[in-house]
Write a protein that binds this DNA or RNA. Structure first.
Lengths: 221, 221
DNA sequence: GGACTATGAATGAAGG
DNA sequence: CCTTCATTCATAGTCC
């Protein structure tokens, strides 16, 4: 297995048309986030279509077994070599210790929801201690509040009764069951016979969780 | 199989990394030819799989006409696609990839806020691809618009204290028409890499509406 | 190095 | 419309 690091990270690399590394000149292309989004969506569309087609196939072969068998080898197709990879890994912000400290302080002293203006101030202050955006601050407070609330609820309910329907809610305290994250294609793969491991792995990835990133709320650095 | 990590760290991306030329702030990613190749192949895989599946479908239905007819309705985004999760209790709607495509298309076609009537139509169309209600559609547009707008606003203010000389660089307001970011492949195709005619045709085709159940729809090529 | 956990981010829905 | 909440997804970090 070849692993290729494809990091476009922090170092404020000059991101331009070509860059030389040890191997010599390497041509690169520049994509905007939007273009990437486009690609992601495109993949998602394909994933969807494949799902549907596979489903159709299953429906049909359910009535006509032999055919399914005979066509099985079609899947072991040549054209598809490649390895697939996450089309993008959205990096997520991680607060520094200092930032966290400040945030916690504000959270505790503060009255619930920081206003837009407040967010700006906080962001401004925190940016002295590391990269941060207003979105980050906003999200942080959102999550902080939500989770702190949920913790209370859980604590309370565990005292009195247990709600059988939702074992999910108590995630933080309990050991959540292994979530049956949808494995869209994986099933299809088994039933229908994508034998080629490379393909199946791709499908697994794509089908498994093609969350379509549409646009991030306020992302902007 | 190779694995590429493609991380774009929003952290510590100095602002100057973004180019504020005519278009305003735009984040870019850099891809090598190899990486592009990977993507291209990825798409090709899907294209191929889809073709094969379609082929199978045609073969099967050729021998079993009635099936195609009788099962036609079942083909609509089968169980695997999102929609309402299982039978489990309350669950929020999640658009299918196909639905999303359509929604995005409509959204970008303009006509701002869909009227009540329009919503009905859209809902109707989308319901062919999965469970959906008018409320869902309405909410979707509401959120879509709001978030798209907020995104623009924030894009302007990445105020860093240190040399925050400019909160001045203002909102490069969305120019929806000039940047067809969501017209699926069209842009990516041009700007990026999909030269393979077969693939692009597929992609273009997919970009529009498609009905899998209609066999003729797939016979184009 | 694969599961598990914490948590940042995306997003459907509700309220105003 | 705008803001907020609730829920879910995905990833970074950690422990085995």
């Amino acid at each position: 297995m070849m692993i290729m690091e494809w990091n476009q990270q922090q170092e404020s690399q000059p991101q331009n048309q070509s860059e030389e590394n040890g191997n010599g000149v390497m041509h690169v292309k520049v994509m905007t986030d939007e273009q990437l989004e486009t690609l992601r969506k495109q993949i998602a569309v394909y994933a969807s279509i494949c799902e549907q087609l596979v489903e159709m196939h299953k429906n049909l072969t359910a009535h006509q077994d032999l055919t399914g068998g005979s066509l099985g080898n079609l899947y072991c197709d040549p054209l598809m070599t490649p390895g697939w990879h996450k089309i993008s890994a959205r990096q997520r912000w991680t607060p520094t210790a200092v930032q966290l400290q400040i945030l916690e302080r504000i959270f505790h002293e503060g009255t619930g929801t920081p206003s837009k203006q407040k967010i700006k101030e906080i962001t401004s202050e925190l940016s002295q201690h590391g990269q941060i955006s207003e979105t980050n601050v906003y999200n942080w407070f959102q999550n902080r509040r939500a989770r702190s609330k949920r913790k209370q609820v859980v604590a309370a309910s565990s005292n009195n009764n247990n709600n059988a329907a939702e074992s999910e809610v108590e995630t933080e305290v309990e050991s959540p069951k292994t979530k049956p994250q949808n494995l869209l294609v994986s099933q299809a793969e088994q039933d229908v016979c994508f034998q080629n491991p490379e393909i199946t792995s791709q499908l697994n990835y794509l089908g498994g969780s093609y969350h379509i990133y549409d646009q991030h709320a306020w992302q902007g650095e």
